[in-house]
């Protein structure tokens, strides 16, 4: 690990100023991903600004009946929050499906969104990687890519975003609140993470020095929501494919549907094409399968990860079917 300076910020303006004063600085909160990447030599910040004590740790109901989640709320606290468990079930389930209890106790809302891919080439500094070292190439495309992307990838990068939480937030129409020296702005979660294109070194649209301050959720649009994750072992493993969905069925027809996939792309994958097919159609397994197929028609699997396409189809149809039968 490279030596670095350290400051614990008590106020957001202090954090922004410290970042600006130290070129190449990084913010740290839970540190569960960043400290690991520093040990691996993937991240080499000369200065860390500790934002874990900023007053951004509240979970509060908003005036419109939605929820405001502070950036430094721990994943474990958010998963156990009564309003999250009852109104945003998919979010609680996604958080509890991620990592281990020890990691969830440290990891924060903002850090979860900003975690880096677990692509083995990205994490190994002896290998080329366009995300870590732009222009060096992507060995994953021909190499070990069983766990990597089937949708939205580019010639430069086939990495997946590893978060479970972000997939649920994508289906729940979350907004991410950012604060920079130029002021505040809000980005829909579905536009927060980028597809790799020609610049896979940029995971998100966050500008240098900007701080994630909160995530907000509108009042739940679907009657019920759920998250389901397929992985290589029963617990404590990243998703091969995951699905978050919210669904409202009235008089046998789909009134509202939101669907997002995880483990398949460089960003949480909101399935707008599937939602388009679902709207107003009979709430049957046939409809769900047709809708999911419309989405997955865009899939472009690599040599060893074509299994993800039928896995995504099966998971999504199952989640929608289960949701439709909830009382």
């Amino acid at each position: 690990m490279k030596p670095f300076g350290y400051l614990r910020a008590d106020r957001t303006d202090q954090a922004l100023a410290a970042y600006a004063a130290h070129p190449g600085a990084q913010y740290v909160a839970g540190g569960t991903n960043l400290v690991d990447l520093m040990k691996l030599g993937v991240a080499t910040p000369p200065f860390l600004v500790d934002i874990s004590r900023l007053p951004l740790d509240g979970v509060d109901e908003t005036a419109d009946g939605g929820l405001r989640i502070g950036a430094t709320v721990r994943n474990s606290d958010l998963a156990a929050h009564p309003l999250v468990r009852t109104r945003y079930t998919a979010l609680s389930q996604a958080l509890l499906a991620g990592a281990s209890a020890q990691l969830r106790n440290a990891a924060t809302t903002g850090g979860n969104l900003l975690q880096r891919t677990r692509c083995p080439y990205f994490q190994d500094t002896s290998k080329p990687c366009n995300k870590r070292a732009p222009g060096t190439g992507c060995p994953a495309r021909e190499g070990v890519h069983r766990d990597l992307a089937v949708l939205g990838h580019s010639a430069r990068c086939v990495a997946t975003h590893p978060s479970d939480m972000a997939v649920a937030l994508a289906a729940l129409d979350a907004q991410v609140h950012l604060l920079g020296l130029d002021g505040e702005r809000t980005v829909p979660l579905t536009e927060f993470h980028r597809l790799p294109g020609d610049t896979p070194e940029h995971d998100t649209v966050v500008r240098p020095g900007e701080l994630v301050t909160a995530v907000t959720l509108p009042p739940p649009a679907g009657a019920h929501s759920a998250y389901r994750k397929a992985r290589d072992r029963a617990s404590y493993a990243f998703a091969l494919v995951s699905v978050a969905a919210a669904l409202t069925v009235e008089e046998g027809a789909v009134r509202h549907a939101a669907l997002a996939f995880g483990g398949v792309a460089h960003a949480p994958w909101r399935a707008r094409a599937a939602e388009e097919v679902l709207r107003g159609e009979p709430a049957t397994e046939e409809t769900y399968a047709r809708a999911v197929d419309a989405e997955l028609a865009a899939a472009d699997p690599l040599r060893d990860n074509a299994f993800k396409v039928p896995l995504a189809r099966g998971l999504a149809v199952r989640v929608l079917t289960d949701l439709a039968f909830r009382p």
Partner: peptide, 26 residues
């Protein structure tokens, strides 16, 4: 030493964490 095995688990403020991923300065 990468937060994957749990052998370093200790309680900080009563919560279990992986002490290998916590910088002492924080």
């Amino acid at each position: 030493d990468h937060g994957q095995c749990g052998a370093c688990t200790v309680l900080v403020g009563g919560r279990r964490i992986n002490s290998c991923l916590v910088l002492a300065v924080t």
